[in-house]
């Protein structure tokens, strides 16, 4: 992704313009009981108009890496290393105040549980309008008018009447629309959606995903979609990054990865799909437990659970699964995986 930064006449960034570069991101939490290594060298890029899905089991570091990009982790206890460049500017080295001003108009985020993520004591209109009052210096009246516009835009029925209602007076799906309205208020270049539909009914999930896709088409924003739901990934994402133990273990276009996984962990995820639907979304795909992030296994972190692993004499030189860490490497055109034996996995 080394295309020059271009913008169309309408101010909508041309597709393919790199917006975000995450470079060897590390996040650890220093606790009295030890250091939790939540993110261990994550790198990816996001272009305008692109949808990148981040997939992985619970505890694999999806949310923490997203919150590091947003700059909303408390440091301490979190320690963040690496590079996060938004439109070429490193977020980690800029002042807290400059970083704050990017949240909202530059990068925006929505969370899984809209009920607890909205403030219960303010009306939804007040909370949406707050974006304009704080970032644009709008008056109360102006902010409220904008809030109604946005509620219309995310298709909340009778927006003008409901603008003064409180979060608890809305249904789950409508509340998530309120969150979305708030997040897109200032036309952000990037929207990070952390499991935006996990808490919703299946039919409502589809509506909310459709809304996100439509908004993306209108604005050309880059979308990072964190999810457990392979079906959603398949439908809406261009590219997918699979995380395990705070690392990206596989990356590629959705079509490629879903057709033929290059990492045994991804392979396991794909094979568990029918099971996923039966259990209502949470992945329980592969035997064994996710690793303890305070004591991640040496070598390939996945090796205790891997059916392809080669240990001791069975391994090729420098590719012993329990001692040699597999780097994320190109395994096929446009495909990256962190496995010593991806070529064999791809053949399966």
């Amino acid at each position: 992704m080394t295309l020059p930064q271009t913008t169309t006449a309408a101010g909508v960034p041309a597709p393919g313009t790199p917006l975000l570069e995450v470079d060897d991101l590390h996040v650890e939490f220093r606790q009295r009981s030890g250091v939790v290594h939540a993110v261990n060298g994550v790198s990816y890029e996001l272009a305008a108009g692109q949808t990148l899905a981040i997939l992985g089991e619970s505890g694999s570091g999806k949310s923490v890496s997203a919150q590091a990009i947003m700059g909303i982790l408390d440091t301490p206890p979190a320690v963040i290393r690496g590079g996060i460049r938004f439109e070429g500017r490193d977020l980690l080295t800029m002042s807290a105040e400059d970083q704050r001003k990017i949240r909202g108009p530059g990068i925006s985020m929505i969370f899984q549980d809209a009920l607890s993520s909205l403030n219960p004591v303010y009306s939804v209109g007040w909370q949406i309008g707050e974006m304009f009052r704080v970032h644009r210096g709008a008056s109360r009246k102006e902010a409220k008018r904008k809030a109604v516009e946005l509620m219309d835009r995310v298709r909340i029925p009778a927006a003008a009447r409901r603008v003064d209602d409180y979060p608890h007076q809305f249904s789950g799906g409508m509340r998530q629309r309120v969150m979305i309205a708030m997040a897109i208020a200032l036309d952000p270049r990037i929207l990070i959606a952390d499991e935006p539909t996990t808490a919703l009914d299946v039919t409502v999930q589809a509506q909310v995903m459709d809304l996100l896709k439509d908004l993306q088409r209108e604005t050309g924003m880059g979308l990072i979609l964190i999810t457990h739901d392979l079906g959603v990934v398949n439908e809406v994402a261009d590219d997918v990054a699979v995380m395990y133990a705070g690392r990206i273990v596989e990356r590629g276009t959705v079509d490629d990865v879903f057709t033929d996984a290059a990492h045994p962990y991804t392979d396991g995820l794909m094979k568990s799909v029918p099971q996923v639907e039966a259990k209502g979304g949470r992945l329980q795909p592969i035997t064994g437990q996710p690793p303890n992030l305070a004591a991640i296994p040496g070598g390939c972190p996945f090796h205790p659970r891997c059916s392809h692993r080669r240990l001791g004499a069975a391994a090729a030189p420098g590719r012993e699964c329990a001692t040699d860490v597999p780097p994320l490497r190109l395994v096929a055109p446009g495909r990256e995986a962190a496995c010593h034996y991806s070529e064999e996995v791809l053949g399966v």
Binding site: Q67, P105, N119, V134
Partner: peptide, 25 residues
């Protein structure tokens, strides 16, 4: 609380996150 995390994600100044979104509640 989650809504304080949201307030920070909205790019509100720290003083506003504390006074409007933490103290009020």
């Amino acid at each position: 609380a989650d809504y304080v995390r949201t307030a920070r994600a909205k790019g509100l100044p720290r003083s506003r996150v504390i006074v409007q979104h933490t103290l009020r509640n």
